[in-house]
Computed example of a mutant assay.
Amino acid sequence: MTTQFIQLAKAAAADGQVTTDELLALRREGWGDGIITRAEAGALFALNNALMVRSTEWVDFFVEAIGEHVLNGTPPRLQCSDAEAAWLIAQIDHDGVVESMAELEAMVRIIERAENTAERLKNYVLGAVEREVLTGVGPTRCGGELSATHISAAECRIIRRVIFASGGHGPAAVTRYDAEMLFRLKDKTLAEENAPEWDDLFIDGVANFLKGFAFQNAQVGHERKLELEAFVADNTPSVARFMGRMLREGSQAGNHFGKVFGKRQSGPDYGALAAAGEAVTDHEREWLEKMIDADGAVDELESRLLARIAAEG
C-alpha cells in the first residue's frame, strides 16, 4: 500500500495539483489498511507544499490523514508525544513559517482531538498565530492585505480552539503562557479594528487562567497510557484467572479487592480543590498587576476583565 500511495502523491506533486480522481485514489490507498504510515504522511506534506491551489476537499483529506498518523499511527491512541510533535513541527517549519491553512488546521485538529498533546505543539501554533497578527503575513491573512496588528476572526477562532482544547495543558485550562500571549496581542492592537470576537476571547482566556481550575494530573501521560493499554490487552491465563477470582469473591462477600490492593484511600476533594482554584491568589494578583501596569494605563479591556473577576467573586 505504501509504495503505491507514495507514487500517487509524487505524480500529483509533479503536476502541482490534485485531481478528483487522484484524491480518490489517495483515499483508497491511504485507508486501505486503516493506517497512515510515517512515509505516507511525509509524502502528503511534500504534496501539500507542491500544490498551487489547495481545494477544500484536499484540505479535509490532508487534515484527516495527518491527524490519523500522529494520533493513531502508533500506540497509545489519541496521544501526541513529544517526539511526534517534534516530527510534525519539523515537517511544517522546514522553511521557518506555516505556509498553508491545511498545515495550521492539521495541528489545531490534533490538539482538539488528542487526550494529551506535547506542550511544544500547542505553543508552536500559538506562536505562529501571534506572528501572523504582528506581521500581517500568514495563512490566515488572505495575502496579507490587512494591517499588521489587526486580529482577524479566523485568528480569534484558532486561538480559542487551541487554548481551550482538551489536548492542551488540561481540559479547557488556559495556561500562563496563553494568558501572557493574549496580553501581548491586546497591547499591540489596542488602536486597531479587531474582530468582534477578540474582546470576549481576551477576557474569557485571562479570567480562565486566573480563576479556572484544572485537576492535578488531569492528562494521562504518554508512558502511563501505554502501560494501561498493555494491562488491558493482556489476556494471558494468569491475568484472566486473577480477574476472574476477584470478580467471584466480590460478588460473594462484599469488596474483597481491599484484601489484595489494600484499603481504598479517599480520593481528593474535587469540590474543595475547585473552590480553591476559583480564588485569585496573591501570586496571581501580583502577576495581573504586572501585566496591567506594563503599558502604564488601565485600558477598556483590562477594566472589563477586572469587573468580570470581581463579579464572579
Rank of each mutant, 00 (worst) to 15 (best):
T56I: 12
T56H: 12
E57M: 08
E57A: 13
W58H: 01
W58R: 00
W58F: 15
V59P: 00
V59H: 08
D60T: 15
D60A: 15
F61M: 11
F62Y: 15
F62N: 04
V63T: 05
V63M: 04
E64P: 01
E64V: 09
E64M: 12
A65S: 08
A65G: 02
I66Y: 00
I66N: 01
I66H: 00
G67Q: 01
G67H: 05
G67A: 04
E68Q: 13
H69M: 08
H69A: 01
H69K: 01
V70C: 02
V70M: 08
V70Q: 05
L71G: 05
L71R: 08
L71T: 01
N72D: 10
G73R: 02
G73E: 02
T74M: 08
P75W: 04
P75V: 07
P75L: 11
P75T: 06
P76S: 02
P76Q: 02
P76A: 07
R77M: 09
L78I: 10
L78E: 12
L78W: 11
Q79C: 06
Q79S: 03
Q79F: 05
Q79M: 08
C80Q: 08
S81N: 04
A83H: 12
A83T: 14
A83W: 07
A83Q: 14
A83E: 15
A85H: 13
A86R: 14
W87Q: 07
